[in-house]
Amino acid sequence: MTRPGLVISRISRVLSDYENLSALYALLVVGGVIIGIVTLPFIGYDDDQLYPKTLDPSSSLHPYDRGGEPFGTTDVAAQYPENSPYLGYVTAYLTPFSAFLADSTMHLGTTIVSHPGGITDEILYNTRGLDTVVETSILFVAFAIAAYLFRREE
């Protein structure tokens, strides 16, 4: 396989084969990881985490607790509490449209109907609404691709 040529054209030959792509990428990541390992001792961790890390059975954020105070205020650490006026409620975050729905009718505007990520939102955390929308969108897109590929012969 080794044809004669300058160093540059030899490198080019490796680069031009897309079979080598993942190896090339792996090489870059390994380089990054090595830098990471070298700098690891210098990294300090922040104790004041955004979300509580330990499970507190008395907290209503406790994922396995189905009792408790469902609509009570919970101690969620929010980056911008002023953006989430209902902090601690399941409807802590609403898109502007669903906030409008929630204000104008009694039947709409809970997290579940406000956006596809509603249920995940409720289970996960109360302050980061857009994340759950994107997470479920990713799942949705992946399902859409798989479904299309599976059914296109019909």
């Binding site: 680069l15 031009s16 084969d17 897309y18 080598n20 792509l21 090339l24 990428y25 870059l28 990541v29 990054g32 830098i35 990471g36 700098t39 690891l40 210098f42 990294i43």
Partner: peptide, 24 residues
């Protein structure tokens, strides 16, 4: 922000979007 976090972010975006190596 530690250097390694920045390197990882750039590497991640490079892999997702394939920014510099465009062979595939």
């Amino acid at each position: 922000v530690p250097l390694i976090a920045k390197i990882f972010l750039v590497l991640g975006v490079m892999g997702e979007g394939m920014a510099p190596f465009y062979i595939a």
